[in-house]
Write a protein that binds this DNA or RNA. Structure first.
Lengths: 247, 247
DNA sequence: CGTGGCTTTGAGGGAGGTCAAGCGCCGTGG
DNA sequence: CCACGGCGCTTGACCTCCCTCAAAGCCACG
């Protein structure tokens, strides 16, 4: 994100074409991994009542840093990018969110980062007020939020390790392993990794330029360690990548 | 932390010489900023009952990554260093803790980082079991812990910005401003900053070598922007440092 | 007064950034 | 249907910032 001083504008969210039918938590894909997993089956109605579904197209912006934070979200489909930018345009991608992830933890009133859609995304949206009331009402939901925050902290510190100590090669390896494991979320991780984000995104996530990302990947590909395809990367020698990532 | 493969051993904590008298939360220096600020005056006895005071000398280790996490702490005096190390000895300092800071958030059973004393420190120590029971009992304490976690997350992401996007010069400037503001904690920040940690610590905190830290500081000093003394740094041109740090 | 730890300073090299050009893919419009 | 343009990715040449290696200075402490 070197040059472009174009400021993205928050996009008006749109009702999803496939979401004519309202919220049905019991059959939600992320029921078991999202924060709402803290709610018992008979409590689901209380969150269904305050939630509604939202969709964004790739590149659309959910919100910008310093916006008023008047809603929380659970991502149910697609991938989001969270980031902060310096005045001069340098961008740090804080993280990529995948289905089951939650937004709404750290803001006391205003957002501490910007968020936009990497792919087509679907979200479960909660007005902040209603959500806060719900949390007040259900202590186990607060506990779940606390666990989520704690987990995010671990993630952030892993990320710090990568940014501060690893070489470009190690950063890329770490990114691939990290992405693979997150896609798996408990299930068996596949070495065929979908990579929906651009080189620019990856670079800004790892503190590298797009050229270095590209060069490093092609070098790994030439060595036969990975295989690069238009919308994904396959680990041909997962062990080697893991070793690099652990380093 | 390039070479040394010496593994520090957790140190047996010692009763503090000046702490013969047991815990007295009402007169605690960090009463208003620590997590226990969530407790009403009449609730203090419940935490005094489970807490006791601990002291460590500089360089002593509280615990290591992967240790069982069977206690939580509030730091009441001195400075701690939290860090993780790679197998090959590379070290990332996660953060420095100052009076009022809390340890005990992110571990589900074992520690995610190591911690040791930078200066002489005093801690308020809580056995994990007792502390957990207390939290279960007091929802407002859980809320406070949640806020603390959220705040730590913001901190971690600020740190990520520094590690990923800033030059050596900007990193140092950011570090100085950051430290100054944390020492102030609401009060008026003084441009005379105590810097108890070594160049090695600062380097590992910022993803730089000690040589780069040293060179960058002396360059700032030669420009008259800062003044370096044995145990501290004075900002002679705070504006300039702030501008660099914001970058 | 010597020894060891921490810091500073210098010289040299290399990983990754910068600048620039070219390629492949896809959507658009003639 | 093909030409064109734009965007994202790759590749190359060059350069710079920071790392590496080495030596010397400065305290503090025994």
């Amino acid at each position: 994100m070197s040059d472009s001083t174009v400021i993205p504008l928050p996009t008006r969210p749109r009702a999803c074409t496939h979401a004519q039918t309202g919220i049905d938590c019991a059959h939600c894909d992320v029921r078991l991994i999202a924060v709402c997993s803290a709610l018992r089956r008979d409590e689901l109605a209380s969150i269904e009542r305050i939630a509604h579904t939202l969709c964004y197209a790739p590149k659309e912006t959910l919100f910008l840093e310093n916006d008023a934070a008047d809603s929380a979200y659970t991502l149910t489909r697609g991938a989001l990018r969270l980031y902060r930018v310096f005045a001069d345009g340098r961008r740090q991608v804080i993280g990529f969110l995948l289905p089951g992830d939650f937004i709404g933890i750290e803001d006391d009133g205003y957002r501490r980062f910007s968020a936009d859609a990497v792919t087509e995304v679907t979200l479960c949206h909660y007005p902040k007020r209603d959500f806060a009331r719900l949390v007040d009402d259900k202590p186990h939901l607060l506990q779940q939020l606390y666990r989520t925050a704690a987990h995010d902290l671990i993630d952030a510190r892993d990320h710090m390790m990568a940014l501060g100590q690893r070489s470009a090669r190690e950063k890329i390896a770490w990114f691939l392993i990290h992405l693979r494991n997150r896609f798996a979320r408990g299930g068996t991780p596949s070495d065929q990794i979908e990579v929906p984000m651009s080189r620019q995104d990856i670079g800004d996530y790892l503190g590298l330029t797009i050229e270095t990302v590209s060069r490093t990947l092609t070098r790994l590909a030439r060595e036969g360690t990975v295989e690069i395809s238009p919308r994904g990367i396959t680990l041909k020698d997962a062990r080697k990548i893991e070793r690099l990532a652990a380093a």
